[in-house]
Amino acid sequence: MGVSASGRLARVEHPASGSGQAIEAVAARVLSRYLRSTARWGVARYVDERGRALDSVDVRGALASRADGRPLLPVYWGADAIAVATLPFLGPPFLEAARRITFLFDETFGGRVCAGLVNQLGGQSVMLAPAGRPERLEHLSLVLRRGGSFAFAVDGGGPYFRVGTGVASLARALKAFVVPLACAATPAIPWLHRSGISFPLPRCRVTAAIGRPIDGSGPRQTVVEEIQAALDSLGHVVRSPVVPHGERREG
């Protein structure tokens, strides 16, 4: 649980440390080791929304704190979550971002495993009660009161590949910019789940596309449509078989 007894958001020291969560703790460690070994011989390629190569300075800039102090909300499809999770193992830009930005996960098996992974990377995460539970409002209210930058799968829990209004409301409340991300690994093995999630295989090439920041202070429906369009477009970019620019491994 990411909320302490005092009602303040707390760093998830080890979300899978409870007696009933030992499986998640083991799964997080296994996943961490797997991604680390997968990334060892993997390569990362960073591109913008038009498929143009970005270097590590560009990536750092896209995910860095803004000069105006407004927070960032990096968002991605749940299908890309494992590929996104591979990025910190492939180089410093995403590792630095993962340690600076708080991740939001639903209180599910997969969410607890992901939180364990973030914890192992030295990052922070907040667990949210599943949608429909009254506790979710409590957890979200603490997120709002705390403020800051948060990363999350925008279609977590479904419907998948659809942007809901929640992200736009959150961006508006936090006066944040939404940073759409898409990420795909090749080769990867699909997980039999309707979210479309897949696992990178050893020697994979991971392509991450970072879209232009979307100002969350705009009209809610417009923000939703912009995020949807950006994620759809970035998804095509990272899954394009054409490699328009050289690839590199950051390190």
Partner: peptide, 10 residues
């Protein structure tokens, strides 16, 4: 009205 959880809190 399209209210979501965050909007409810706001």
């Amino acid at each position: 009205l399209g209210m979501d959880s965050i909007a409810a809190l706001n």
